[in-house]
Design a protein around this nucleic acid. Structure first.
Length: 165
DNA sequence: GCCAACGTTGGC
DNA sequence: GCCAACGTTGGC
């Protein structure tokens, strides 16, 4: 059985709610990526992510918005517990515990960039013209990223570590 | 805070 | 199955 090739992702979070610093501060060293209520994003987490995949941690609704750091997929997909919590903002009364509608993965911090890579720089880089993040109207919070895009963003972020391969 | 772009819901 | 109404995302 051939080993699966590592994949790359971009995951958005509002830093006022949960920032890259919060991820680094997790006592357990990882966090459940909960509250995703979009089928496309769920499908990526449920069907295509694997432990060890690399993640660009993106700050949305920030000034400026942009890629703030690097993270890693740290678990297989499992049901998002918040969907069954009546007090949770994203409680989903239509989700059947026997067949949960929403799935998530755990995410662990990997490294910081030397500098945040702002969205307008992503948009201004011709090498990144195909990135979902720079497309007009794009608001998907979990997106696939190609290897070349990953390396280019790390370069823009001044990253010199081992992951820039 | 505004609003364009999307996604979902539900009446028909 | 269409589509109007509504809700959300996220840049600006």
């Amino acid at each position: 059985m051939p080993k699966r090739k590592r994949q790359y992702w971009l995951m958005k979070s509002e830093p006022d709610v949960y920032s890259i610093d919060d991820l680094f501060a997790e006592p357990t060293g990882q966090t459940p990526w909960d509250s995703i209520r979009n089928y496309q994003a769920r499908n990526f987490m449920r069907d295509e992510m694997a432990v060890g995949d690399f993640v660009l941690f993106y700050h949305s609704n920030a000034k400026p918005p942009g890629v703030a750091g690097l993270a890693q997929v740290a678990s297989e997909a499992y049901p998002d517990p918040t969907q069954f919590d009546p007090d949770h903002k994203y409680f989903d009364p239509k989700s059947d515990p026997e067949n949960p509608r929403w799935m998530l993965v755990d995410v662990a911090p990997l490294d910081r960039l030397e500098r945040l890579v702002p969205l307008d720089e992503l948009k201004g880089n011709p090498k990144l013209a195909g990135m979902a993040t720079v497309q007009k109207g794009s608001r998907l919070s979990v997106q696939p990223v190609t290897g070349p895009e990953w390396r280019e963003v790390l370069k823009m972020g001044g990253y010199r570590g081992k992951l820039a391969k």
